[in-house]
């Protein structure tokens, strides 16, 4: 077993007094790319909000690269290289694409390297280079998603969490995005990707976790485990 880059143990969290995560535990080993699937409203986004420090963990621990980050400030977690690209690509609507990307590199380290990083982002998403002076509110859904992922990359992530990057995109854009994410993985960034469509994750993830009712219900990993049928079985329950 190789070293864990992310180690979540017995995590409980929620909104107000309503618990959403029920003692969820899982690990991400170095070099792994994890696909998260599971029904809506069962805690995937809540899990990420807790990991990135937006939401307080009620109990349990989160360790990133061997160090405890439970309930640390979001900015510090970002600086450590755990970067969460949220669902719904809301961005900073009245800032330009370029300004959004710069803000993705707000922390000191990434800021110093931003010129080099932004070239990589533009190479990955050439359309963003054309639209760099445009306000984000005028972009299409697909372009916004590219900006959101671009912002994540600008922060020089070691582990990039993508929360439903394909939400509302056309099949053609989905394929484009999958190729881009594959390129990101190939460049050495580990990912956790949430996706409703297991087909999308097929070539990207090395392991799948089914999150439902605030905990990890099942997992499939390793060789031969990624066949479509098994994922479907896992998603809909075994017959």
């Amino acid at each position: 077993m190789s070293e864990l880059i992310l180690d979540v143990r017995g995590l409980n969290s929620g909104y107000g007094r309503v618990p959403v995560l029920h003692g969820i535990s899982f690990g991400v080993a170095s070099g792994e790319n994890v696909g998260l699937i599971g029904p809506n409203g069962h805690g995937k986004s809540t899990l990420f909000r807790t990991l990135s420090g937006l939401l307080r963990a009620w109990s349990g621990t989160i360790a990133f690269r061997g160090e405890d980050i439970t309930n640390h400030p979001p900015a510090e977690i970002v600086e450590r290289g755990l970067i969460h690209v949220p669902q719904g690509n809301t961005l900073f609507p009245d800032l330009t694409v370029q300004e959004n990307l710069w803000l993705g590199a707000f922390a000191k380290g990434p800021r110093a390297q931003r010129l080099r990083t932004v070239e990589r982002v533009f190479a990955l998403f050439p359309r963003l280079a054309e639209r760099r002076g445009q306000r984000c509110r005028t972009l299409s859904g697909g372009e916004r998603q590219m900006v959101a992922i671009g912002c994540g990359l600008m922060g020089l992530p070691k582990l990039l969490i993508l929360d439903e990057p394909t939400l509302g995109l056309s099949p053609k854009l989905k394929t484009e995005l999958r190729d881009a994410i594959a390129a990101i993985i190939a460049s050495g960034v580990q990912t956790i990707i949430v996706e409703q469509d297991p087909e999308f994750l097929h070539t990207l993830a090395t392991r799948f976790l089914l999150v439902s009712e605030g905990t990890v219900h099942a997992e499939i990993s390793g060789e031969g485990g990624l066949e479509h049928k098994r994922i479907v079985d896992m998603y809909f329950g075994h017959s």
């Binding site: 937006l54 900015a75 970002v78 809301t90 961005l91 900073f92 803000l103 990434p110």
Partner: peptide, 16 residues
């Protein structure tokens, strides 16, 4: 300006 437009996304970008 970023914080004014989207507080959560600003935090996730590493803005204090």
């Amino acid at each position: 300006r970023a914080v004014a437009q989207n507080r959560d996304f600003a935090e996730l970008s590493g803005v204090r």
